[in-house]
Nucleic acid binder design. Sequence first.
RNA 1: GGAGAGGUAGCGAAGUGGCUAAACGCGGUUGACUGUAACUCAAUUCCUUCGGGUUCGGCAGUUCGAAUCUGCCCCUCUCCA
Length: 376
Amino acid sequence: MKNFYFEKTHNDKHSKARTGYLHTPHGVVETPMFMPVGTLATVKFLTPEDLKKVGSGVILSNTYHLWLRPGEDVVDAAGGVQKFMHYDGPMLTDSGGFQVFSLADSRKIKEEGVTFKSHLDGSTLFLSPEKSIQVQNKIGADIIMSFDECPPYPATYEYMKNSVERTLRWAQRGKIAHQRPEDQALFGIVQGGEFEDLRRFSAEELVKMDFPGYSIGGTSVGEDKETMYRMIDYAIKYLPDDKPRYLMGVGSIDAILEGIERGVDMFDCVLPTRIARHGTCMTSVGRINIKRKDYEYDFTPLDPKCDCECCQNYTRAYLRHLHRCNEGLASRLLSIHNIRFLINLTEQARIAIKEDRFTSFKEQVLSQSGFDGRGF
RNA sequence: GGAGAGGUAGCGAAGUGGCUAAACGCGGUUGACUGUAACUCAAUUCCUUCGGGUUCGGCAGUUCGAAUCUGCCCCUCUCCA
């Protein structure tokens, strides 16, 4: 596909970390990068202009959610999701596979696809690999995902083996169903849980199908960090060097750094925006819960080292006030900050990689004052 | 001056003899959150040296036992003069 390709620019000499450019029909973005999640064609509380300001490269949207509302035909009629939401940058849609996992109540996974209940009205829905791709073709994102099963953790080897095999068949079916390979890059998703041979099998089989990019799925589903890092190692080992690797659903500071060190190029996560709405912030001095009484009279910036709109213009005391009063501006400003924080983290990471000092950069960030090992 | 209603934890509000240290909501405090059913959810909220102590306007009673029953007092609100 001409409109989409990955161009590796540098390999850290002492780790598997690398930098590159991801070329998409809606622009070129540098990797490793963090992608904010905008499930319903909006990153909650932010405008596309806000996202541009914080240096966001790619944003996500979601097949399942847009399929239900407003419906893929509306998005298609609008001219695609970017036009629909007045955003002109690169986008990626998740396939709905994760919803099969997160809306796990009363779902039935069969070879044809998954039957499950709508979270909106309880009606019975059916999503298949073909249907997911068909919807994603209409939504029109630059990068689309294979319809996969995100298996629970822990799962037995037997369960995982069946799931991996089925997800591979679904990947093949989705590839065949894909109507717009010229302007939408379809990624395959490596599964296999904590099992090395299954991760390997999943990766190798996907590579045979030749996707323009590969995702690592089934992480951040309850396993401990060390297990997750092993899952990444198992998968990446068998993925081609010249294709982008996307670690799905990972957005804590330590996990992003560990992922980059292992050769991951793309991350997405709801964490920064969700915890922002709940009053928690990632900062250079560690985790800050803006609700705390400690900040009642604190007229300093949220993060003294941050260059975002929130930290440049507002104080902790004011942000605490806004949050306590349930003012939407708190959600907006804290979301801007958290996203900027992670994007800045990846920007710094890219510089470190280019200077072949990624591991020491990682160690330095993780040992920063206030970082208490709780994830960020 | 007359008639009526009422005073319960920071606030609002249940409770009308024991299962009530007192429902529920708000407010307060703390925590969680990882391909978004999430401006959500959880814990905690009289004092405590964790043994216990002191509460339901105040005081005095009835009772084995009172926020709940009786008497007096204080205060608030509504209506009529």
